[in-house]
Design a protein around this nucleic acid. Structure first.
Lengths: 186, 186
DNA sequence: GTCTATACCTTGATAGAC
DNA sequence: GTCTATCAAGGTATAGAC
């Protein structure tokens, strides 16, 4: 079956977002899927290959999603982004960037580059969204749009991490205030 | 020598902040200190005990430091906090919260509770600092001080993570804009 | 307080049959 | 494409000598 491969990636994705890249093993995948670890190695020769596949799909999915939002006004688009994080939070997951960046130094360079590329994608999208929204008067903030994107992304990323530790309500407190801030200057 | 114990904790602290809790091993400590792993187990029977000791010292150190700042005005105190993060960034480290929170689910409950306690300490301090500073007119921000503390802490925490991935300049971009924001309403 | 020695387990990965 | 079988390496942890 072709979709064994997809199920492997999907489970790896979830494991990375719950336990972290270095804390999950092939057994965590082969057991629930009722296959042997050799089957995983057939589809993904090394763990690095599997990690790369997880990132590729995440980026692919985001590009597809954000493309669908493109017709909406920028403030709605940003809320859609927030909603993707909210969904992860409800499922008890953190985002890939939040999970992978602490382990970054332990990665082979091929995987490191993928993490960097993914981060760029998210930051550039957010930056453009903020900039265009400000031009239309939908957002109000000072300074460079990319700097503002850095602030927003770090809020989102770390809010999921903090929810793990301090409880789920942290997320809505952060995002509600953040959205207010972006319109505050009105 | 009594300070073997201290050197073990210090090295563990650094390893957690560079490679992550689940990615460092007793060998990473015993080799550079030129001791055997049994010596580590003498001081810290389990890896969990070692992790707890690292957190305890971090909190202890913060309480000591922030106590020294207490005579300064709140805007200076906050800048001191930023400076502790800046120092970590220059050393290529992330903060303990940023490193430990993604692995939270893999921890035994004793270690989880320590992580939660540490986060509370940092958040409460920041919240009080912001609140008092606002009363004195040193800060200008909307909403609840604790919510604002959540925003500031997530910015700081994730800025170090993002520096790993996107380069070191990210830190100053984030903190400069953040400090401007807190005074912007003036 | 540190050592040697070792137990025991899990890890990622490979070879070859089917 | 999946299996069985196996590997070498590395992980945490313990017992007992010094």
């Amino acid at each position: 079956m072709q979709d064994t491969k997809e199920r492997i990636v999907s489970l790896a994705d979830q494991l990375i977002k719950t336990r972290g890249y270095n804390a999950f093993s092939y057994k965590d995948i082969s057991d629930p899927l009722e296959i042997k670890n050799a089957a995983i190695h057939y589809h993904f020769p090394t763990k690095t290959d599997l990690g790369i596949a997880v990132i590729d799909i995440e980026v692919e999915r985001f590009i597809l999603l954000s493309g669908k939002w493109a017709t909406q006004p920028e403030d709605k688009q940003l809320k859609q982004l927030f909603e993707t994080f909210n969904k992860k939070n409800k499922e008890g997951l953190v985002c890939l960037m939040g999970s992978l960046s602490p382990d970054y130094e332990t990665f082979p360079s091929a995987l490191q580059e993928k993490v960097t590329g993914m981060s760029s994608t998210f930051l550039n999208w957010t930056s453009e969204c903020l900039e265009k929204g400000r031009e239309k008067g939908l957002f109000h903030f000072d300074g460079d749009a990319y700097d503002r994107a850095l602030l927003v992304m770090t809020n989102l990323l770390a809010s999921l991490l903090l929810c793990r530790v301090m409880g789920n309500k942290v997320f809505s407190r952060i995002t509600n205030q953040l959205l207010k801030d972006l319109n505050a200057g009105k």
